[in-house]
Structure formats: structure tokens, C-alpha cells
Write a protein that binds this DNA or RNA. Structure first.
Length: 483
RNA sequence: GGUCCCAUCGUCUAGUGGCCUAGGACAUCACCCUCUCAAGGUGGAGGCACGGGUUCGAAUCCCGUUGGGACUGCCA
């Protein structure tokens, strides 16, 4: 394999962040288009923040999204020896120096200076290394580092704006900028595609990459190409927050968003396919994707548009596919995967798969997510109609005409041919007798049969429910109104 | 404060000097369809942040202003 090599390198925080998912998607699209290699690397060096058991959430979310990787997952925690060796080489070649300053001491010294950070106090003190010393990188004095970015062009950073940053903590852990660069070198990464928030730290990595290339005994490696993707922001125009914003990909899956819709929507954030069509499959995205075409400005993650797009995808499904996709929400007990903290409104005994199959097309064009299905069809399976009290009061309990109409309906429906068309006509005739238009005459019947005023088409629903059950419900509603 | 990034309808975007009277999508409004709710159809409103330049010609190139954001940790 001689194509580009790219990697997705998330830290395991318990779920896949939508911003990370998009970064992963763009890496994947680039790799698939160029015949390159897509590598998954879990950045778990910060033992205090990372939970080993959490990276499973990342791989399962990626699998759901269809972002298959060619190598990995590699755990950065298993590459610690490499990091340490590189740090030693940098130290031996004079690029790193020991520092025993505490944060307090530095703050004290810098109290009267406007510029925060580090003052270079230990730069030339030849401090002996100990378990109290960290290793800092000797940032070149003067000059600049240029980051070649495929999306933004060359970005120039003056060295003066960088303090001598810490590379190795006093406890021996090699920090992100070096660990990341070392792994990218050993994995022969050619293109680093990641979020724009990492752009300011990129010069550190470039400087260390360059320093490594000049260390004795280390084979020089070509610098990679960079591509910094625009940030995903919330309606405050701030970077998506793990605390305040719904960012877990898993939660969208739980709500019943389709993988294809999610991927399509994510791709549209910062990129767009040719022409006026936005609904495009993975093949089209792979064929048309260009890093050069990626937008420069932050994009707002708009759930409304995602919801619309999901509805479009839901409606493109055949009824069979729709029924299949709905299983985790309508029959979770028989489903391999099921949404977390979810319970169907009915029991396995109450649920009738054959009936659901017949009902499915009635809801397929009405829902935005698979998670909305159950509430819409629960009246088919529940023995006790789930009444919307406000609707019941308004259309039945406090309406004497409606009560009389229901009584007539019970009589009429007892003998008519049991098809949606006939039921429609019968209700129309019933309405005429009471001087009501169909929209009015169907309301109390709908409420009595389904419990609410909104839902799937009434007459088809009644046909599927059957004469006996419908009449039972009409009687129950009349009795209930008389209580 | 410093460094860097960014700037087309409310939102996501098309647009790479003349095809722009700025196109599409979501949201929104109206109408149509209609047994409810949706879905669907038709139509409307809505934008090049501002100021200078360059050019015969600028949404597109340059400069400045303003505004927004990211980073600035012994996190990643």
C-alpha cells in the first residue's frame, strides 16, 4: 500500500463526540478516495482522565457509522517506550532541558508581567534531572514555524509567541504534542486531518518533528501534510461543549437516527457535494470529496436539519427495511442492540409483530426518528387505550353531540362492511346526520379508538384493529364519559 | 493581554473576476392536498459585515476596520 496514510486519534472519553465523528469521517473519506490507509489510534496516555473500558464506545460508534479502519485500534499507552526513547534522544541532543519550577513559583515571578506562561528560568541553569523535574522544549529564539495546511494554506507562527513548553512530566509521562508526533512518525502518517482547535499546537509538533530529524541515530521522516477542519459550534457560536451540548453520537443512535443520515449530515458540515442535491450516499461522497474544498469557517450543528434529513432517509426505506430498522424500539427484547435506558410502551406479550408490519407504512411517512414510532402506534397494542385527557374532555366528555354520535357509531359499525373505505363513508354519513363535517365527526371516534387527536389515518387503523376491538373501545369511551 | 483562524439569507452551503437580477437545503410564512397529525406540491420573505483600494468589471484579489472564534495546563 503506497497511498496516503491517515489516522483518527481520539482520546477515550466514554463516547464518540460528533465533532470527532466528523473528523473521523473526513479522514475516512480521504483514505477511501485515495486508496490510502485509515488508522485508528486511541490516545490514552493521560491515565487520570482515561478509562480503558471507554474506548469500546468509540469503536462501536464508528462501526455503526460504517467508518471501518484498516489498522488498529492502537493504544497509545502501549507505545510509551517509543515516546520515552524519543524524549531521551531530544534531551541528549540538547533540545530539551530539565526544569524544577513549580507553577506557584512561576506565577510569583510572572505576577507583574502581562504575559502568562513560562519565563525560561531554567533554560540555562543545567538543572539535574530528578523525580521533581519536568523536561521542557527549548523553543528557538526568533524565527517562525510555518504549518502547511491543505485547507488554509501556509500558516505562520512566530517562535516568540511560544513559551518553552513541557514535553515530559515529572512523573515521566510524555505529553500529547510529542507522543502524537512520535506515533505519527512511526505509523508513517502522511496527512493529519483534525480539528482547527489543534492548529495553535501544531507548530510545537512541527518543531519537535524537525528536532527529531536532527537527532543522532534517528532516521529523518518527511513532515506530514496538515488539514485543520473548521470547528463544530453550538448556537452560541462556541465550540461544542461536552457538558452543555448533546454531542454523543451514541445518543443520536439511541433516538433512532439512521447511520446513513448521520454520516450524510456530518459530511455537509464544512463540505458539500456538487450540484443542488444534498442527500448523497457514501459512494458519492468518496468520489467527490476534496480536502481543498473544505470550508474555512465554523459550522453550527443543527439538529433540526439532521432530523429532516433522517426523515428523508426513513422514507427512502422499503417497508420491510423500515420494520427491520424499527425492531430495537418496537421489540427490544428480541433485538441484539437496543437503545440505552429505553423501554417499549408495551410488553412482549402485548406486541403483535404481524400487526406492526401492517401498520408500519402508516407511520413511516410521519416520523422523523425511529424512536418516535412506538408512541404513535401504542394504541394498537395496549389493552387500555392511552387517553390524552385534555383531548378526551374536549371531544367527548364535554360534548353531548359527540356522545350521541358515538352511540350511533356503535350501532352503525356493528353491521357495516369492515374496510377503511366503508368506515370512512359511514363516518361521513354519521356526521351528516348530526350536522357535522367529517373533520368534526371523526374526532370523537378517533379519540375513543386511539386515545388522542393526532396519529395515523383513523379508518385504516380501525380496519386493522378489527370490528370487535373498535366497538369495545367506543363503548368504553362512552362509559368513561358518563362517570 | 498575546498568537492564530474565520466572515454569502436565522442556519448549512454553491460561488475561485464578467454566466449573480447571488443558486440550493433546513427553519419560517402563505396556499393546495387532506379524516387528525405528518408527508407531499406550489409560491413568498430573507444574505455577499463595513470602509478603502486594484480592475473596463469584484461576493470573488489586496489593505484596514469591526465582529466572532480557537489556543494560551506537568489535558488532549
Amino acid at each position: 500500500m503506497t497511498g496516503p496514510r491517515v489516522r483518527f486519534a481520539p482520546s477515550p472519553t466514554g463516547f464518540l463526540h460528533v465533532g470527532s465523528a466528523r473528523a473521523s469521517l473526513f479522514n475516512w473519506l480521504f483514505a477511501r478516495q485515495t486508496g490510502g490507509t485509515f488508522i485508528l489510534r486511541i490516545e490514552d496516555t493521560d491515565a487520570e482522565r482515561n478509562r480503558p473500558e471507554w474506548f469500546g464506545a468509540i469503536t462501536s460508534a464508528m462501526t455503526w457509522l460504517g467508518l471501518d479502519y484498516d489498522e488498529g485500534p492502537f493504544l497509545q499507552s502501549e507505545l510509551l517506550a517509543d515516546h520515552a526513547a524519543s524524549a531521551e534522544a531530544l534531551f541528549a541532543n540538547g533540545y530539551l532541558y530539565a526544569c524544577d519550577c513549580t507553577r506557584e513559583e512561576i506565577d510569583e515571578r510572572l505576577k507583574h508581567h502581562a504575559k502568562p506562561g513560562y519565563d525560561g528560568y531554567c533554560r540555562d541553569r543545567q538543572v539535574a534531572r530528578s523525580e521533581r523535574t519536568a523536561l521542557r522544549f527549548r523553543v528557538p529564539e526568533g524565527g517562525v514555524t510555518v504549518v502547511p495546511d491543505l485547507i488554509r494554506g501556509d500558516v505562520t507562527f512566530p517562535h516568540d509567541s511560544y513559551e518553552d513548553f513541557i514535553v515530559v512530566r515529572s512523573n515521566g509521562v510524555v505529553l500529547y504534542p510529542l507522543a502524537n508526533a512520535v506515533d505519527d512518525r512511526s505509523m508513517k502518517i502522511t496527512h493529519i486531518i483534525r480539528g482547527e482547535d489543534l492548529l495553535p499546537t501544531t507548530p510545537k509538533q512541527v518543531m519537535m518533528w524537525e528536532a527529531l530529524n536532527h537527532c543522532d541515530g534517528i532516521e529523518p521522516v518527511d513532515h506530514p501534510h496538515y488539514a485543520h477542519l473548521p470547528l463544530l459550534v453550538n448556537d452560541q457560536r462556541k465550540k461544542l461543549s461536552k457538558r452543555k451540548d448533546p454531542v454523543a453520537v451514541e445518543s443520536y443512535r439511541d433516538q433512532g437516527y439512521l447511520s446513513d443520515a448521520m454520516v450524510n449530515y456530518l459530511a455537509l458540515l464544512g463540505w458539500s457535494p456538487k450540484g443542488d442535491v444534498e442527500i448523497v450516499g457514501r459512494d458519492t461522497m468518496i468520489a467527490q470529496f476534496r480536502l481543498e474544498d473544505v470550508s474555512h469557517s465554523p459550522a453550527l450543528f443543527d439538529v433540526k436539519k439532521l432530523l429532516h434529513m433522517n426523515g428523508e432517509y426513513l422514507r427512502m426505506l422499503t417497508t420491510e427495511q423500515f420494520v427491520e430498522a424499527a425492531q430495537p424500539w418496537v421489540a427490544p427484547w428480541g433485538s441484539e442492540w437496543r437503545p440505552t435506558n429505553y423501554e417499549a410502551p408495551w410488553t412482549e406479550r402485548q406486541f403483535d409483530p404481524a400487526l406492526f408490519r401492517q401498520v408500519a407504512h402508516l407511520v413511516q411517512e410521519r416520523v422523523g426518528t425511529l424512536g418516535e414510532i412506538a408512541a404513535m402506534v401504542s394504541f394498537f397494542f395496549l389493552d387500555d387505550v392511552p387517553y390524552d385527557e385534555a383531548a378526551f374532555d374536549k371531544t367527548i366528555r364535554h360534548d353531548e353531540v359527540a356522545k350521541a354520535l358515538l352511540a350511533s357509531a356503535i350501532e352503525t359499525f356493528g353491521s357495516v362492511e369492515w374496510t377503511a373505505v366503508v368506515l370512512h363513508d359511514a363516518t361521513l354519513a354519521l356526521g351528516t346526520a348530526f350536522d357535522l363535517v367529517l373533520r368534526k365527526s371523526q374526532a370523537p371516534i378517533r379519540c375513543a379508538v386511539t386515545g388522542t387527536l393526532v396519529g395515523p389515518p383513523l379508518f385504516e387503523s380501525m380496519e386493522l384493529l378489527g370490528r370487535d376491538e373498535v366497538i369495545r373501545r367506543l363503548r368504553a369511551a362512552v362509559a368513561r364519559a358518563g362517570e
